[in-house]
Every structure is written in C-alpha cells, then in structure tokens.
Design a protein around this nucleic acid. Structure first.
Lengths: 224, 224
DNA sequence: TTATTTTTTGGACATATGTCCTATTCAAGT
DNA sequence: ACTTGAATAGGACATATGTCCAAAAAATAA
C-alpha cells in the first residue's frame, strides 16, 4: 500500500489538499483496461493519477474511436468536469495497473477552495486546452503524410523523452487511431515513405533512414 | 464614456476584481477590424469585453484561416494565456466597435489572486475547452453535409438565440471558413440541398423548406 | 509437418473535398 | 443604356482518404 503523503510530496502537490480533503479521499488501484471514467457519464470524483499510465480518448455514438493521448503519472483526471460541472469529456482507461488518489468533488467543494488549488487546476486545464487546440488545428490543416512524418520524427528525436515514453509503445493500429486515420491509409502512407527510402519497415518496427528529408515532409508538424 | 462599475455590476462580475486591480485597469475601445491580440504573440493584459462582438480564429503560418466562433459580450480574452503563461492561442478581432476593460496581468497577479476570481477563470477556461473539444470532434467525424445541415438547423431553431445572434450574420464566405471548408464546396453542398428541395437559395439568403429532413441529414450535429 | 486461424498487407473502387478557372450575375459609375 | 469591376456560381479535374475485400504471411493447433 502506498503512502499518500509521500506520493503527493514527491510531486510537490502536498500543499494543494487540506487534511479534511485527504481524509475524505481514498487510494484506488485499477487493473489494466479499467475505465476511470467514460465519455458523457456523470462523474463525482477527481482522480490524481499517482502511478501508471492512462489512455485518453473519445468514443463517438457510432463507435468511432479518437485516441487523444497516452499520459503517464502524474495527471489529473476529472478536473475539467469538476470545473465545468459537465459530464465526462474524454474516456480515460488504465494502461497497465494504475494507482490514484480519488477525491470526491464534494470534499473539494467543502474543504478545498483555496487559491493554490484552484490555480493549480486552472493551469492544468489551460495546458489541456492548448494541447487540444493545437492537435485539432494540426489535424485539420495537414495531411496524414505530414502528421505521420511528424510523429516519426518526434519519436526519434532525443529531448522528447516524454512524448517518446508515452507514444512509442503504440501498436500500428493505435498509431492509426491516434493520427486519426484508417489502418489502411496509414499503411499506404508508410509504404510511400518506404518507396522513397525514407524509412525501413519490418513487420514490427519502423526504422528511420533519412531523418532530414522526413523532417521536410513533416512540414513543421511535430508533437509536444 | 462608460462606467466600469456599472458595466461589471450588470454582468455580476463586480465582486471579481479588487479596487487596486481596477485602478490599474483602463477602458479601451477598439474600432471594427482591430485585433485585440493575435496568434502566437505575447500578451500582457486580460480583456473583459463589455460591449460589442469579437471574432475568434487562428491563422496558420501558411495563411490558412480557421474561424472558431463569433462571440458577443461579455467574454474574457486572454484568460487562457494568463493561466498558462503562453503566447496567444487564438486571434481575436473586433467585429464592429468593441469596448473592453483592459487589466494588466501584472495587476491580476498582485491584487487579484482570490478564490472567486480564479474559480471564475477556471469555469470559463473549462467551458472553452469543452467547446473546442466538441467542435474538433464534430469536425473530424462528420462530412460537410452534416455540418451544414446542423448549422442551418441551429440557426432556424428558436431557443438558440445566442447561436443565432452570433452566427447568423456570417457571410457565405465566412460560413465556409467557420465550417472549415472551401467556398466552392460549401456551394456544392448547398446546391445539393436545393436539388433535393430541402432549402431554397436566393443570392443573399438560404431559406429552409423542409426542416425535418434537413435535421435527419444533420445526423445529430448541431451547435450550442 | 500440415492444417487452421489470425494478422498483416495491399488492390480496387468510391467519395469528400480542394484547386483552378470560366461563365454568369449584380452593382456602380459614366 | 453601356461599361467595367466585383461578387457569385459552377464545371473539370486532382487528391486524400475511406471501405471492402482478397492475397500473403505469421502464429497456432493438430
């Protein structure tokens, strides 16, 4: 069993929550594949992801998946919903075991309306808005070729550890989802890169052969 | 010259700002077409739009325009940037004369770190995130036909005053930008609706003839 | 090893949408 | 009424991308 205070201290988040708040909270562990919350549902707690990774996506009514990102601890889940009072915006699913601190909104409302905490939420939500806005812009304004090139470059460049750690483990099919395209089209575009000698493709991996030209192809698209 | 306190009281925003903050602020009026802030620029003040309308969009490097929305007073501009410390996310331009209260970030940092104000920002930013996320989802998952039908329906339905007031005055070209398509394609799609007898089109207007079938075509897409 | 099932790959075709350009219509000036 | 210029409409074509399916390869079972 993990010690909450230690975990929060490590993140330097210990000053954010009052004692009363923490007393109303609990540590929860989720098995891989569990949904912490899902699209359009009601939610009543804030989750502080202390350990593990989560996958964030939306599932439209027609069942189309839109993978938004993978995110490693620490992250807040439910902040947007707490702030807006709306139902869940994005589904969040555990990828591997995940440990969270679960804090009921009620406790936050009662015992945690401090400037520090609210500012923390505000910063976090703003960051998310930036990411969302950029992703959606990128998406709208570029072809898969550019996005794929950008993705490959972003993975290969050092100094991009966070992105690497989070996005390198996607399977081909998930890459397609994340890039917002069909598996078919991803393959087609990848093949085009192969034909031009920009990358080499084995059954399981893609190896970059000419990162210079690939970067040109990315045309300014890159992630994080 | 407008009285700030009156204006803020009318919006019930008077309790949000301290006296010191207000003393550091100024009322500014912008002529139609002025940019309150533009994409990727540095910004140092929060704008409380008290009167008038603004147009919010992004201009990509290649000069492509992405119209996000029209928004009538009251609105906050610069809240996201204040919260995140980043450069401007979306360009904001006055549509008609606009009166704002301009509050330097510095003043907010010094004299306005209250729970009320921060929570107000937080709510606002979360709302914006929801809108952005939905818009981008819609955009990604539907064809122009659906979006256009949704737009027309949303304009025609009463009980949608806000949307109507803000979006009905767009010119055909702007509608195309807002729907994220080319003028050409907007015409093509409109023509398809005409051919099916769903709408009638004069040079300046579009009149809905069969809102039932149009609504089906919208396939669940509608705005605000 | 051979047979069967699953995964991966790529062909063929349809469709949404963009670009470019010409024809048409409307408005404004002389 | 003509002329000119802007706004509007629409034809023709290119392209990105989706869908559906069959071939090929790999993994698994027998």
């Amino acid at each position: 069993m993990m010690n909450i205070m230690d975990a929060l201290t490590r993140l330097q988040w210990n000053h954010l929550f009052s004692n009363e708040t923490l007393e109303s909270s609990s540590v929860v562990t989720y098995a891989s594949g569990t949904m912490l919350c899902s699209n359009d549902q009601h939610i009543e707690s804030l989750f502080v992801v202390l350990e593990g990774r989560v996958k964030i996506y939306t599932l439209s009514e027609e069942g189309k998946l839109r993978l938004l990102r993978l995110k490693a601890a620490p992250t807040l889940i439910g902040d947007i919903e707490y702030a807006s009072g709306r139902n869940v915006l994005h589904t969040v699913e555990a990828v591997g075991p995940v440990t969270c601190l679960r804090i009921p909104f009620e406790a936050l409302r009662r015992y945690n309306r401090t400037v520090e905490f609210t500012e923390h939420l505000l910063r976090g939500v703003s960051e998310k808005l930036f990411i969302e806005a950029n992703a959606s812009s990128n998406h709208l304004m570029s072809t898969l070729e550019e996005r794929l090139a950008g993705y490959l470059i972003s993975l290969s460049e050092s100094g991009n550890e966070l992105f690497q750690a989070e996005m390198s483990q996607l399977k081909r099919k998930e890459v397609a989802e994340w890039l917002g395209t069909s598996y078919r089209h991803l393959n087609r575009t990848l093949q085009a890169f192969v034909d031009e000698g920009l990358v080499k493709r084995t059954r399981k991996e893609v190896i970059i052969l000419n990162s210079e030209r690939l970067k040109e192809r990315a045309n300014g698209m890159f992630y994080e």
